[in-house]
C-alpha cells in the first residue's frame, strides 16, 4: 500500500469571520490523482493553496511529502514549492516578456540551474517544440497552458496541483491537456490534485472529493 503524500487533520482556514475551509481530515496516497469538486466558494481553491504551500492554515495540521508545512518559514515554503510542487493555474500565468522556453527555464532557475536543452525537451514533450521562441501573447490559450504544464513538471515535482487548469479552454483543448497530464503522470509518477467544477474533467482522476461551504461532503472512486 502507498504511503500518504498528503495528510491533514482538522485543517481549517478562516478569513476574518468567514470560514473558507472547516476542519478537514484528508489523506492522499502517493501517485493518486485526486479531483476536488465544488461550487464557487466551496473551499476547493483554499485547499489547493494550503496543500501547495501558497497559504497558511488557521488551525489543524498539514503534512505534505513528510513535511510539516506549518513549521516552515516563508523561505522554507518557497523552497518546498520549488522542490516538491508543480502548479498550473486557470489563467495560465506566464511572464509576458519571456519566451516559452525562458518561462520554463525560470522555474529551473529558481530551483537550481537553468538548462535550456532540458527546457526545450519539456516543451517538446507537451507538443510545443515549434513554439519555443514565442512569447505568451503569440500563443493560444491551449498552448499557453501546455507551457505552464511544461514549467510545472520541469523540476520533477512529487505533487502536481491544478487549479481549474482547463477552465479557460475549449473542449478540444481540454481533452488535449488532460491526455497530456495523464501521459506525464504515467511517466513521472507524481501525485495530482485537480480542482475543477467540470464533472468530465474530474472523471480523469482516481478519486473525487466534493466540498460544499468548506466541508467535505462526499467522496467517490472513479470507475475503471
Amino acid at each position: 500500500m502507498s504511503e500518504n503524500i498528503i495528510e491533514t487533520n482538522g485543517l481549517t482556514r478562516n478569513y476574518g469571520d468567514i470560514c473558507a475551509l472547516k476542519p478537514l481530515d484528508l489523506q492522499v496516497p502517493e501517485g493518486e490523482w485526486l479531483s476536488v469538486m465544488g461550487h464557487s466558494g466551496s473551499g476547493k481553491s483554499t485547499l489547493m493553496n494550503l496543500v501547495g504551500g501558497l497559504d497558511r492554515p488557521s488551525a489543524g495540521s498539514l503534512r505534505v511529502g513528510g513535511k510539516d508545512l506549518l513549521a516552515l518559514t516563508e523561505d522554507g515554503l518557497a523552497r518546498f514549492r520549488r522542490e516538491s510542487v508543480g502548479i498550473i493555474f486557470q489563467q495560465h500565468h506566464m511572464v509576458p516578456y519571456l519566451t516559452a522556453v525562458e518561462n520554463v527555464m525560470m522555474a529551473q532557475y529558481f530551483h537550481s540551474v537553468p538548462d535550456e536543452a532540458e527546457a526545450r525537451s519539456a516543451l517538446e514533450r507537451v507538443g510545443l517544440g515549434h513554439r519555443l521562441k514565442n512569447r505568451p501573447g503569440e500563443l493560444s490559450g491551449g498552448e499557453q497552458q501546455r507551457v505552464c504544464i511544461a514549467r510545472a513538471i520541469i523540476n520533477s515535482p512529487k505533487l502536481l496541483l491544478g487549479d481549474e487548469p482547463t477552465g479557460n479552454l475549449d473542449h478540444k483543448s481540454t481533452i488535449m491537456v488532460m491526455e497530456l497530464l495523464k501521459e506525464l503522470r504515467a511517466e513521472e509518477r507524481f501525485t495530482v490534485i485537480m480542482v475543477t467544477h467540470n464533472q468530465e474533467v474530474a472523471a480523469w482522476g482516481d478519486r473525487t472529493i466534493y466540498l460544499d461551504d468548506g466541508v467535505l461532503v462526499r467522496e467517490e472512486r472513479t470507475a475503471g
Binding site: A78, R81, R82, I87, H93, V95, A107, F110, H111
Partner: peptide, 8 residues
C-alpha cells in the same frame, strides 16, 4: 507568479 513557482 515567481513566488508561486518557488522564488524566495
Amino acid at each position: 507568479l515567481m513566488k508561486a513557482i518557488g522564488a524566495d
